[in-house]
Design a protein around this nucleic acid. Structure first.
Lengths: 146, 146
DNA sequence: CTTGACTCCGTACCTGACTACAGGCTTTAG
DNA sequence: CTAAAGCCTGTAGTCAGGTACGGAGTCAAG
């Protein structure tokens, strides 16, 4: 099956037809000349390229970054590829750190809410409203650090 | 300083004027009636509300969720607040898990790229292009799991 | 030979959280 | 008094990564 219409190509890559066209507009995928008539046909190269794009997305790369990756050569551009991957890794670490700070703050607020007297106002809402009175140190500590 | 114009209010909350207006359009902040003339004036309540919004954002809540939080009462709605916080916590865990899978896959690819022979094609690009030949198990393992 | 599925192309819409601008009025500093 | 800064309303644009739709052409099966 070396020749498919856009619909079959999209199905094979498990993306929508509109997505394929979108990638073409973004310059990630070539638009072949129409064979006999108006309809364009795609080969295995196009399918491989679509799969490359989807896998790179799963690793966290944006479409712009994927355009860069697609421009690299397996044999001559190892350094460039590794640099992009390391940069992405750093971005992921940053995002994880931010999420981790949120997680710490929220966890402490929830714990506090679960173990404080019912007579008191809700620690979660109260801390959001008046963090300066920090009954629970969680919020200030975790967030100020991040 | 119980009465400020929108500019001073925004400055005090460290957000832009346009952001304040945006929150008003979203229904997060009341639009007061203009006092003598056309200009509207805001009190400390508005400032507290803006700060609440910003802090809740830092904890990961969306503006829609913050609208819910703002509708809760510190004294009577503890359960609701805790439920929202726990739900958010679960979402954060999910996002962290996904990031962690990416991180594992990328780390292994980078390691592999650093320690494989220069004669070979770049493991990063090669795996993206042909993951089925998995020279490095990283990608398939980490991503398939997530 | 018709019907229905598919393709082509262009344009508009979606989410979320802003951000910018235009055109007119008000307030304040000098 | 004047000029600059600030405020008002309303509309539109930004980013990412798509998704939807309209109208016309084309292709394959029955």
């Amino acid at each position: 099956m070396t020749s498919m219409t856009i619909g079959r190509l999209a199905a094979a890559a498990e993306v929508g037809v509109e997505t394929v066209r979108y990638y073409q507009r973004r310059g990630l995928l070539a638009v072949p000349e129409p064979t006999h008539g108006q309809v364009r046909h795609y080969g295995d190269g196009a399918l491989a390229r679509l799969r490359f794009i989807r896998r790179a997305q799963q690793l966290g790369f944006s479409l712009d970054e994927i355009a860069d990756l697609l421009g690299l050569d397996e044999h001559t551009d190892r350094n460039a590829a590794r640099a992009l991957a390391k940069e992405k890794l750093a971005q992921i670490d940053e995002r994880m750190a931010r999420l981790s700070a949120m997680r710490n703050a929220l966890t402490e607020l929830v714990d506090c809410c679960e173990h404080s007297s019912t007579a008191q106002p809700c620690p979660i809402l109260h801390t959001l409203a008046h963090p300066d009175e920090r009954q629970n140190a969680a919020y200030s500590k975790s967030i100020a650090a991040g």
